[in-house]
Amino acid sequence: MKTVYDRPETLTSSKTHYCPGCTHGIIHRLVAEVIDELGVREETIGVSPVGCSVLAYNYFNVDMQQAAHGRAPAVATGIKRVHPQKIVFTYQGDGDLAAIGTAEIVHVAARGEKITTIFVNNTIYGMTGGQMAPTTLLNQVSMTSPEGRTAIPQGYPIRVSEMLATLDGAAYIARVSVHNPQEVSKAKQAIKKAFELQMAGIGFTFVEILSTCPTNWGYTPKESLKWLVDNMIPVYPLGVKKMPEER
C-alpha cells in the first residue's frame, strides 16, 4: 500500500492548541512540507513569536527560539549572523509583526537579512481575546473597537506587504491566502519560493498569509472563509508584491 498523505517530518506529533477552523494549522503544515521538500529540516532554525503561534516551537520539529513580542526579526538576525549557512525563519502574527514589532520587521527588510518571515494576518489579536490589530479592517468590530474600527482616530489598516515592498533590501514579498485548496497550493508555492531565495542568498523574503479567526470574529469556520474572501482580499489584494530581478 502506498502512503499518499502523512505528517511531514518537520511537524512534531504534538496536537496543536489552535481553535477549530483556524488556519494556523494549515500554514504550519505548508511551512513544514516546504522544509521537508527542500531537505533542510536539520539546517533550519525557527523563531516563534508572541500571540496565537507562541507555541509554534512545540509543533515545528526543528531548532527553535521563542522571541519577545514583535522581536522575532531581531532574534532571527542574531541567529542568521552566527549561522549564515543555516535557514532561519520567523513565524509571526499581525499584532506581533505590524504593531509592537513594526520597527524590527522594517529594518530586517531594510538590511536585507537573509531570513524568511511567515506573516499570518487574521486582522485581530487572537491570543489575548480579540482586540483590534493594526490590520483590523475599517468598520470591523473587535473587543477594543466595539463600534467598529474608524479611520479617525483609530487609524487605517496597514498593508504590510506593500509597505515592505518599497524597501530595497526586500527580495521577495508575496501575499497569499488559504481559504480554498487552489489558494493553499499557491500559498505553498510562495513559501517555497521564499525559502529557496533565502537559500540562494538573495535577501529578505516575506510571505503574508491571510488567515481566519472564527473564535474572535464570531463566525463559523465556513462563514469565516467567506468573510475573508469578501472583506479582507479587497483590502489586502493577493499576489507577488516584489520579486528579485532575473539574473
Binding site: I45, V47, Q65, A67, A68, R71, A74, V75, A76, T77, G78, I79, K80, R81, V82, H83, A103, E104, V106, H107, R111
Partner: peptide, 26 residues
C-alpha cells in the same frame, strides 16, 4: 566577526538573544 548597528536598543538586545541562543560569544 560581525558588527550590527541595530534599529533600537530593543532590537539590539534581541539580536543578542538570537546570537547567544545560536551559541555565539556575543
Amino acid at each position: 566577526g560581525v558588527f550590527v548597528q541595530a534599529e533600537s536598543e530593543i532590537a539590539a538586545i534581541n539580536m543578542v538573544y538570537g546570537a547567544a541562543g545560536a551559541g555565539a560569544r556575543v
